[in-house]
Design a protein around this nucleic acid. Sequence first.
DNA 1: CCGCCATTGTACCGTTCGGTACAATTCCAA
DNA 2: TTGGAATTGTACCGAACGGTACAATGGCGG
Lengths: 189, 189
Amino acid sequence: MPPASLSRTEVIERLTAVLRRRGFAGASLAELSKATGLGKSSLYHYFPDGKDDMTRAVLAHLATQLQQALFAPLLAPGPARRRLDAMAGTLDSFYRGGREACLLGNLVVGETRDRFHGELAAIFEAWVAAIASVLRDAGFSRALARTRAEDAVVRIEGALVLAAGSGQAAVFERTLRQLPADLLAPAKG
Amino acid sequence: MPPASLSRTEVIERLTAVLRRRGFAGASLAELSKATGLGKSSLYHYFPDGKDDMTRAVLAHLATQLQQALFAPLLAPGPARRRLDAMAGTLDSFYRGGREACLLGNLVVGETRDRFHGELAAIFEAWVAAIASVLRDAGFSRALARTRAEDAVVRIEGALVLAAGSGQAAVFERTLRQLPADLLAPAKG
DNA sequence: CCGCCATTGTACCGTTCGGTACAATTCCAA
DNA sequence: TTGGAATTGTACCGAACGGTACAATGGCGG
């Protein structure tokens, strides 16, 4: 809790921004310090274990953020199609139409994957479970709901990769647009 | 061409391995040197611009490798289904069933994306074009072949992300298994 | 007004970073 | 055999790295 200017949440959000575009290895303490406006002292005061602590805090913050903005609406009552459309809309703004990188996809790389595997796996699992819940409500079997939910996350993450790699954000937009209908399509299409 | 032991190709392949699992920012000259058995002098002799040069060489090597192992078989004559199955098999061994990271997905992150955007975009484009060619042969319209081909790459890259993030390589295997049939499914399913 | 404690700036630690200089070595062509 | 080019080991550079020590500062409850 920096008394001067920023709340802890704001600090974490600025750390998030740096990790998103630099990755774990590429995010230096100097840049994290500049981005938050906190000196190294303060950074180590709030996050005693350095980058590891910061990254864990960022992931925890992301988890609650996703819980509120994404998973809760998915688990709420209402027509399945509407809930999936809401997810697509939220994701579209969250990733700025495919122009913003995914923190999860970024941390899944190499050694960082091992270091934060628990946190990463928990978030992915919650996401898949939330989508699967919608599909179960829509009448699909447990197994089919699960594999389709995994496929949804696969397509979202993959679309971010291809959109970034090809420079064509339209790939991400189109993927989001098709997703709800594809997920609810009759089985054995 | 190191005369002592390794061919240039072997050197590049060892550089590839390091970049794959460390990412660009995480790959230090020390590790690249150790992995190749070449001192920093030799590394800078063959790649005067340092990591940038090495990465570009790695991407060029990857491009020709994909050309031979993946794109050429896709563009060759034969039943569409068989060609797509061949791609799935090649990818399965290339990514060791989802356990090995994707160099492209790795470099698409943050600042490295800008630095190697041309090379990355070219590889993705060639990949999409090769798959689209199969789908055109299978009778799909140019537009549908294109979007389905993009979707194929999206699902492959996304499956690698989710498999790594969740620790369940099965996600990648299942995605590869479903892909050929999904791509060839009748339109408007 | 005081004292305390969270917070912070500054200076510094040893290490590693990417990169260079240069002399020694190796190699092959002549 | 020799000369020159390709190759390499070693030593080194300044900068930046992640991280720590500590003294000053500041606000706030008593």
